[in-house]
Amino acid sequence: MGLVTTKEILRDAYQNHYAVGAFGAHNLEIIKAVIAGGEELGAPVILQTTPGTIKYVGINYMKAMAEAAAEVAKVPVALHLDHGDSYDTVIKCLRAGYTSVMIDGSTLPFAENINLVKKVVEAAHSAGVPVEAELGTIGGVEDDLVIEDVKALLTDPDAAEQFVKETNIDSFAPAFGTAHGMYKEEPKLAFDLLDDIYNRTDCPLVMHGASGVAAGSVQRALDFGVTKVNFSTELKDVFAEEIRRFFHEHPEQNDPRKVFVPARNRVTNLVKAKIDMLQGTCKV
């Protein structure tokens, strides 16, 4: 069916209090694993690539792989730029055919963040592509960005309301206690803050840094407008773990077609578990 936009699949999730899984896609094997998981459960999926992944894979390779996979997929598939680091990066993704983009100006002063996001929204909407943006600082590690304090800067609800209205974004990533990477202890999520933001913004919300967050906490967030939940670290962990196990048991093996199959299957099983957590019985 080809790639779809995130706007097409997030609005229903927002209205019905479930979420769509957005999965870090670093190579063809993970792309296939993510889509296989979505197909088995009849659920849409979002393939996410950071600027670092784009640099590694190549933007045209990434788009071609995602598009080829989406063409034969039995579920809707979107290709999303995660944590776009500049206006130029966004434009390159739009020209390549991405169907969703995030611009991350969260480290900028508030007014500068708004101006950058408005500029991106104007360009992306003219191409029919939805935009995600972030306000506040989500801690942890994302590409080469390291923020030590998970609660470095939680999103102010008043600022969130103004930000969403002025920028006309399609989805909004608030900082409410999650972090990129894996957690050393269970994060304390600010649900009261999230509830306030939800009531002030008529906009699908996005949870970044969901790898390792307890299922109950993720599901509780769905009551407050969270409709897109990002997973990446856990996928990389099980992929690498399975490759290490395979070579330990088969040190003589040199055929990547055999090496990657069990790793891909582990990722598919994890994707299915995350979709079950986010959507339950909701089907396409």
Rank of each mutant, 00 (worst) to 15 (best):
A152N: 03
R95L: 13
S217K: 15
T50W: 05
Y183T: 01
V34K: 09
P187C: 02
F110Q: 11
A123P: 05
A240E: 07
A43S: 14
P44V: 06
V129Q: 06
T50C: 11
E134K: 08
V120T: 14
L41F: 08
D149T: 10
P130D: 07
D85H: 14
Q279N: 04
D144I: 08
M1R: 12
N168C: 06
L194G: 00
H125E: 06
N27S: 12
K272G: 07
N199G: 13
N115V: 00
G225V: 05
I169V: 09
M102R: 07
F110S: 09
K92D: 15
E249L: 11
T201R: 01
A70W: 02
D144Y: 03
Y87V: 15
L79C: 09
Y183V: 02
V229R: 03
C203N: 04
E39I: 08
Y14E: 06
G105Q: 09
A124W: 06
V261F: 12
K228D: 04
S86Y: 07
R264I: 08
A173T: 00
V271Y: 13
V120Q: 08
G139K: 05
Q279Y: 01
D82E: 09
P109G: 08
L28V: 14
D196F: 00
G128P: 05
A127W: 08
G216K: 13
A73R: 04
S232E: 07
S86N: 05
C203F: 03
R200K: 15
V267I: 13
D276E: 15
A123Y: 07
A13I: 03
F176A: 01
Q162V: 12
G181V: 01
V75I: 10
D143P: 04
A179C: 02
Q162T: 13
L79K: 09
I35K: 08
Q15V: 04
F239V: 02
D85Y: 12
P187I: 02
V213F: 06
T50F: 07
K272M: 14
L10T: 06
K32W: 12
L189S: 02
T167K: 02
Y98M: 08
Q162G: 01
I46T: 12
E132H: 11
T233M: 03
K236P: 01
Q279T: 06
V45Q: 07
N115A: 15
L145Q: 11
L10Q: 05
N168H: 14
L194I: 00
H180G: 01
G24M: 10
F176D: 00
G37Y: 10
K228N: 03
G225I: 05
N265A: 14
T167M: 03
L235G: 09
D255E: 11
V164K: 00
M62A: 05
P44Y: 11
V146H: 14
A273S: 15
V20T: 11
G21Q: 07
I30C: 09
F110W: 12
V206T: 08
T268Q: 14
F239W: 11
Q279W: 04
D104V: 11
F163A: 02
H83D: 07
K63Y: 14
V259Q: 10
V4P: 06
F247I: 09
R266W: 12
A175C: 01
G97N: 05
V34H: 09
A68P: 00
F172S: 01
P51T: 04
S217L: 15
